[in-house]
Structures are given as C-alpha cells and as structure tokens.
C-alpha cells in the first residue's frame, strides 16, 4: 500500500502493517498478504461477525472478531499464537458437531470452506459430541436446493442476496441451538432466487447448491486439493 498521511500503522504478530482508516483488521491484513482464517466473512458484503473464526487478540488483553473490528494506530494484533489457534480450532470443531456434516458424500467436498478450514487447522476429529440435529431440506426450487444439515448460519446468502442481488431471499428464524435459515416465503420456490444470482454461490459449505452439476470437479481439480484455504492471500506476500 502506498504511504500517505492518512495511513494507519499497526502490527500483526509483530510485523508492521499499514491500513486505511475504516478498514477492519481482516481487510488490512489481507492487503498485506496476511491471512486471518474466516468463514462468515465474504469480500464485498457487510461483515456478519458470527462464526468468530477470525478471532484475534489485541494488545495482549482483549479478543475481537477481525472482520468487524476497525484498525487503529499502534494496535498490536495477535493472529497466530497457540492461544488464538486453540480458540479457532474449538470454534471450527463446534461448527462440525452442531450440524450434520458428512464430507465423504457431500458434493461440496473439496470446495467446502469449513472442510478446508479443518484441514488447514489440522483437525482430525472434533472433541465435542455430535448433536445430530433434525434439519429440513428444501428442494422446491427448480435449480437450487437448501440442505440445512450443512448450514453454519453465516448469513452470507442473506446479505449477498440483499446487498448484491437486490433481493430478499433468506433470513433467520428461531434462536439458540434452534436458529435456522429461512426463506422469504413458505418455500424456496416462492422467492425470487435465480440460479445466476450471486447469493446462489455465496454459501461456504454445501447448504445452498445447484441441482445439476454435482461432483462436477474431479478430485485433484477441486478448490482446496492443492493448497490450503487462505494460500491465495498468503501468496501475495511473496510477490
């Protein structure tokens, strides 16, 4: 980033980084080629701050979500200590066991951000007990379906539809462990969702998928077959 009077200087893991006022830790880090693991954040839409996987420690004293916390001058961000990595691992493990994630036959396998995050973090098996919640599938739409078994409640579909497609398609109902994604109507086919919408492609997991073209990418050519999730961001630093 070019230096100018307005730039904010702060550190991530002791490395000096510059960002612009109003930027979040995650945005500024990304521009500097530093990857902050995240699931609910999607570039270009309002950060939701729900998965908490981007948790960082600031000034050695307090934690926050890097996707919603603005940067300030002199801020010291811990993005990689063992303490932070343990917290993030716990959160990813929670996401696995609170839902029904059967990677071996899910057609998002290899392209799934949750699965890729678990691989990146070296999670072999979650330590929490499986809850096996009952979840509904909505296959009423001609081109797309929702499988709530795999939903991680990240709101990426909700906000992408609203902010980029200009449509109200998704929302949330219920609370606590009963919170679930709902559609603006009695079923998905009642909504204005179209296969070409950005929202149809916003899901980090296999909860919203197209009906045709499952397993289209062969093993070896899938998004995370060659390099861990976040590698593209980290690659910037070498250039």
């Amino acid at each position: 980033m070019e230096q100018n009077l307005e730039a904010i200087t702060f550190t991530i893991d002791g490395v000096e980084v510059q960002g612009m006022p109003g930027q979040t830790i995650l945005e500024a880090a990304e521009e500097a080629g530093i990857y902050v693991p995240r699931l609910c954040q999607l570039k270009g839409i309002t950060p939701h701050g729900s998965c908490r996987v981007c948790t960082v420690k600031v000034g050695g004293s307090w934690t926050c979500a890097a996707c919603t916390q603005p940067i300030y001058e002199g801020m010291e961000v811990d993005n990689s200590s063992e303490e932070i990595q343990t917290l993030r691992k716990d959160l990813v493990e929670m996401l696995f066991t609170e839902g029904n994630h059967y990677c071996m036959f899910c057609d998002k396998s290899g392209n799934c951000e949750l699965q890729a995050m678990a691989y990146r973090m070296g999670i072999m098996a979650p330590k929490y007990p499986y809850i096996y919640p009952e979840a509904e599938l909505d296959a009423s739409h001609p081109d797309l379906f929702i499988d709530r078994n795999r939903c991680i409640l990240c709101a990426r579909c909700v906000n992408t539809a609203q902010e980029q497609d200009g449509k109200s398609v998704f929302d949330f109902a219920g609370r606590g462990p009963h919170k679930k994604i709902i559609v603006n109507g009695e079923k998905l086919s009642d909504t204005q969702l179209a296969a070409a919408d950005k929202a149809a492609d916003a899901c980090p997991v296999g909860a919203i998928l197209p009906k045709k073209g499952a397993y289209a990418k062969p093993v070896g050519a899938r998004d995370y077959d060659d390099a861990p999730i976040g590698s593209d961001i980290e690659a910037k630093v070498c250039k």
Binding site: S50, R52, T97, E98, Y128, L153, F172, G176, P177
Partner: peptide
C-alpha cells in the same frame, strides 16, 4: 444463536 460459541 447468532455466534458459534454461544449457540453451540
């Protein structure tokens, strides 16, 4: 139910 740690 908004954030993972509290919900799960």
């Amino acid at each position: 139910g908004y954030c993972t740690p509290c919900r799960a």
